[in-house]
């Protein structure tokens, strides 16, 4: 028996490959890390320019246009609301509760090349203690296959037992699964609160990633907002920064997310992923309802317009955690 003759079983290989690609596509930037750039300083003038760029005074923001007037108005109103509605106060012993419904796309390819696409739903319930160094509690429903686009896929999923894996997790500092980074992978205290500098800082972190420079900046903003833990001043700055991104527009006036209706603001992309990132804001209150990714072209059995990933969040303060 020669080990060099062993191969990864073909059927597993195809399916794992498909799952991995889906996973990578679903969370391309979950673990984003600022890219280190090396700058060579030769003269005092260059140093001055570098200082301006480093301080996010000079960058991609501002001079290439911005969101449409209507989208900017919704975003700027949301920013005003965020500033005026103070963050809920979490007293010692209490928890900030972030409840969310999440939908993720799933897909599988069989050895004969036939593909199946469907959507999973996962309910998340996060309890953040008043002192973040205390124990956090996270209740996860696991991914439950919920939406099918044809009967054969439903049958396939039922046959293959894609069972959810419910979890109850506890960790100080939100370091679930031993992750040292904690809950939010971005250092929020380091982000500028001035919208123009904030957007330059975002561009610097996302440049070269995602399907387009501006699309990726909006994805960064949506990723951060959906954590549910962004402080009001930064939330306001993020809305205003989104209003300065070229191509950002109102994509749907009556967008329904998890039973709540709001205005969808997004950016139509021409990149390879054929998806559009949107954030959804309650027009009446200016509060964030959630975010979603919309398919702009059919993919397998999923028609164009399908929300292949979305998160609706709700935050509140509670006295107890499970």
């Amino acid at each position: 028996m020669n080990l060099s003759e062993v191969t990864y079983p073909k059927d597993t290989k195809y399916r794992v490959q498909n799952l991995l690609v889906q996973e990578a596509r679903r969370k391309p930037n979950l673990f984003r890390r600022p890219r280190r750039t090396r700058l060579w300083l030769t003269t005092a003038a260059a140093a001055a320019v570098v200082a301006l760029v480093a301080g996010d005074v000079v960058g991609l923001a501002g001079w290439r246009g911005g969101a449409t007037a209507q989208a900017a108005e919704v975003l700027n109103n949301a920013a005003e609301t965020a500033i005026m509605t103070a963050d809920p106060v979490v007293n010692p012993g209490q928890y900030l509760r972030v409840k969310s419904t999440n939908v993720w796309g799933s897909a599988s390819t069989e050895a004969d090349g036939s593909t199946y696409e469907w959507l999973d739903t996962e309910k998340l319930d996060l309890y953040i203690p008043a002192d973040p160094a205390d124990e956090w509690v996270w209740v996860r429903s696991g991914r439950v296959p919920t939406t099918f686009f044809d009967a054969r896929t439903k049958e396939y999923v039922e046959k293959n037992d894609f069972n959810p894996l419910p979890e109850l997790l506890r960790a100080p500092n939100g370091s679930f699964y031993g992750s040292p980074g904690g809950w939010v992978h971005t250092d929020m205290s380091a982000l500028p609160r001035d919208p123009y500098r904030l957007l330059n800082s975002i561009y610097k972190q996302t440049l070269g990633k995602g399907q387009s420079v501006d699309g990726e900046a909006l994805v960064f903003i949506a990723d951060l907002l959906r954590t549910g833990v962004v402080p009001a001043d930064l939330r306001a700055a993020l809305y205003k920064a989104a209003a300065m991104i070229p191509g950002v527009t109102i994509t749907e006036n009556q967008a329904n997310l998890d039973g709540r209706t709001g205005i969808a603001i997004g950016r139509t992309e021409e990149g390879p992923s054929k998806t559009r990132q949107e954030i959804i804001i309650d027009a009446a209150t200016g509060l964030l309802i959630g975010e979603r990714a919309i398919l702009t072209e059919p993919q397998g059995s999923m028609p164009a317009g399908t929300a292949i990933g979305w998160t609706a969040i709700e935050t509140s303060v509670t006295n107890t955690a499970p």
């Binding site: 990864y8 794992v16 991995l20 690609v21 990578a24 990633k209 990726e216 390879p272």
Partner: peptide, 16 residues
């Protein structure tokens, strides 16, 4: 740059 398909191609190449 976040290209999931390139990742899939690398998987295909090295999975065995």
């Amino acid at each position: 740059t976040g290209n999931a398909d390139a990742f899939g191609a690398l998987f295909d190449r090295h999975a065995d």
